[in-house]
Simulated scan of single mutants.
Amino acid sequence: MSTRLEVATTVDASLDRVWDELVDWHGQARWIPLTTLRVRSPHDTGLGVRIAALSGFWLGRLPLGLLDNFVVTGWTPPADGHAELEVLHLGPYFTGEGVFHLHGDATRTEVSAVELFTVPGGPLPNRLARLVLPLMRVGFRQSLRQLAAVAEAPRAEPAG
């Protein structure tokens, strides 16, 4: 019994720029509120990247908040106006699949995101998740709008 969460937005930035911001794991804190990501794999690009994403705070090595451990299962960088990032959520608070589809060109990118997730504990927690789905959709949509703002902003020039 999975719950489906789907949102989309338009970004006035190139497909390459949006992709770069999407897969900048450490930079995701700029567009996902109160969230930090820690790369848990030896590499930080491509298939097999493992991430611990925490919406909350780290107290040393102890996560305080909603922890989402995931692995990148699909990695299609921009080519021919399309890019795609797929992840598998491993828990502990939910499991499932997520995918970001990007379609665009040098000036505008359409971003859509779909999450199919299951909350552990059986039917009751999953029914409760469906009840708060409208709030989750608002939050997810706001994060994508913030991704757009980050991608649309001029890049900071390196000091030197």
Results as ranks from 00 to 15, higher is better:
Asp20Phe: 04
Leu62Gly: 11
Val18Asn: 03
Leu144Ile: 02
Phe117Trp: 05
Leu85Gly: 02
Val99Ala: 09
Leu124Ser: 02
Met136Gly: 06
Pro33Cys: 07
Ser143Leu: 08
Leu88Ser: 14
Trp31Gln: 03
Leu34Pro: 01
Asn126Phe: 07
Leu59Gln: 15
Ala149His: 04
Glu84Arg: 15
Leu67Asp: 05
Arg137Trp: 07
Pro158Tyr: 08
Ala79Thr: 14
Trp75Asn: 08
Asp16Tyr: 03
Leu66Asp: 10
Ala153Gln: 06
Gly98Val: 04
Leu47His: 14
Thr118Asn: 04
Ala129His: 05
Glu86Asn: 08
Trp25His: 09
His103Pro: 00
Leu47Ala: 12
Leu67Ala: 07
Arg38Pro: 01
Asp105His: 02
Ser112Phe: 06
Ala113Pro: 00
Phe57Thr: 14
Ala52Trp: 10
Val18Ser: 04
Asp12Glu: 11
Val111Ser: 01
Ser2Cys: 07
Thr118Gly: 05
Glu6Asn: 03
Arg141Ile: 00
Arg145Val: 02
His101Gln: 11
Val39Ile: 15
Met1His: 13
Val49Thr: 13
Val49Met: 14
Tyr93Cys: 02
Leu67Pro: 01
Asp24Phe: 10
Pro63Met: 13
Gln142Lys: 11
Val119Tyr: 00
Leu64Ser: 14
Gly96Val: 14
Ala29Trp: 05
Glu84Cys: 15
Ala106Lys: 03
Arg145Met: 04
Arg4Asp: 03
Ala156Gln: 10
Ala156Phe: 01
Pro125Ala: 03
Asp24Gly: 09
Phe140Trp: 10
Ser112Met: 09
Val138Phe: 13
Val71Pro: 06
Met136His: 06
Thr36Ser: 13
Asp68Arg: 06
Phe140Cys: 06
Gly121Ala: 08
Gly96Trp: 13
Ala53Lys: 08
Gly48Trp: 09
Arg38Lys: 14
Trp75Gln: 10
Ala106Thr: 03
Gly27Ile: 02
Ala148Ile: 01
Ser2Trp: 10
Ile51Arg: 12
Leu5Ala: 05
Ala83Val: 10
Ala148Arg: 03
Leu64Thr: 14
Met136Pro: 02
Phe117Lys: 05
Val132Pro: 02
His89Pro: 00
Leu37Phe: 11
Ala13Arg: 01
Leu102Met: 06
Gln142Trp: 08
Leu88Arg: 15
Trp58Leu: 14
Pro77Asp: 11
Leu102His: 04
Ala106Ser: 09
Pro33Leu: 10
Glu6Lys: 06
Leu54Lys: 12
Met136Asn: 06
Asn126His: 11
Phe100Gln: 00
Leu15Gly: 01
Arg4Thr: 09
Ala106Ile: 01
Trp75His: 13
Val132Ser: 12
Gly122Tyr: 08
Ile51Ala: 11
His82Val: 14
Phe100Met: 01
Leu116Gly: 01
Pro63Asp: 11
